[in-house]
Computed example of a mutant assay.
Amino acid sequence: MRPAPPRTPHFLRFIVTGAVVGFLAGAIVSLVGDSATDYSAGSQIAFFGVMLGGIGALLAGLVAVLLERRR
């Protein structure tokens, strides 16, 4: 009987999921918060979405690394 291969997290799935969740959170923050008169709603969604999407991707990557090192 062969030993089972070690289970490791799929880093790309973690990172993409974190980026999508972060983008959605940024979009919600921009829609719920006070609107700036200088920028359109689309610009605010893009700005906060990209910002929080990057942070979400970094945090999800960190979680994946920590899960892998734990094994």
Rank of each mutant, 00 (worst) to 15 (best):
Ile15His: 03
Met51Ile: 11
Val16Pro: 12
Leu24Trp: 00
Phe11His: 11
Arg70Ser: 08
Glu68His: 07
Val29Lys: 11
Gly53Thr: 01
Ala27His: 06
Pro9Asn: 05
Arg71Leu: 13
Leu66Asn: 10
Val63Cys: 03
Glu68Trp: 03
Thr8His: 02
Ile45Trp: 04
Leu52Glu: 02
Ala27Gln: 07
Arg7Ala: 08
Arg71His: 13
Leu59His: 03
Ser40Trp: 03
Ala19Val: 05
Gly18Thr: 01
Tyr39Trp: 08
Ser30Thr: 07
Ala46Leu: 15
Phe23Lys: 02
Gly54Tyr: 00
Leu66Tyr: 04
Asp34Lys: 11
Arg2Gln: 10
Arg70Tyr: 05
Phe47Val: 07
Gly61Met: 01
Asp34Glu: 15
Leu31Arg: 10
Ser35Trp: 01
Asp38Tyr: 06
Leu12Glu: 10
Ala46Gln: 07
Arg13Asn: 13
Leu31Ala: 13
Phe14Ala: 07
Ala27Met: 14
Ala64Ser: 13
Thr37Ala: 11
Pro6Gln: 01
Leu59Cys: 10
Met1Ser: 12
Pro3Gln: 10
Ala19Ser: 13
Arg69Gly: 15
Gly33Glu: 11
Ile55Trp: 02
Pro6His: 05
Pro5Thr: 07
Pro3Asn: 08
Glu68Pro: 00
Val16His: 09
Val50Leu: 14
Leu67Ala: 14
Ile55Val: 11
Val20Arg: 03
Ile55Thr: 08
Gln44Cys: 05
Gly49Leu: 04
Val21Met: 05
Arg71Ser: 15
Gly54Glu: 01
Ala25Gly: 06
Ile28Val: 15
Gly22Ala: 06
Ala4Phe: 01
Ile55Met: 07
Leu58Val: 09
Ala41Tyr: 02
Leu31Glu: 10
Asp38Leu: 14
Gly53Gln: 00
Leu62His: 00
Pro5Met: 05
Phe14Asn: 04
Gly26Asp: 12
Ile15Glu: 11
Ala27Ile: 11
Gln44Ala: 14
Thr37Ser: 11
Ala27Ser: 12
Met1Glu: 14
Phe47Thr: 11
Ser40Phe: 05
Leu52Cys: 06
Gly22Lys: 02
Val50Cys: 09
Pro5Arg: 07
Val20Met: 07
Tyr39Lys: 09
Ala27Gly: 13
Ile15Met: 14
Leu59Met: 12
Ser43Met: 13
Arg71Val: 12
Val16Phe: 12
Gly22His: 04
Ala46His: 02
Leu24Asn: 03
Ile45Lys: 10
Asp34Gly: 12
Ile45Leu: 15
Gln44Lys: 08
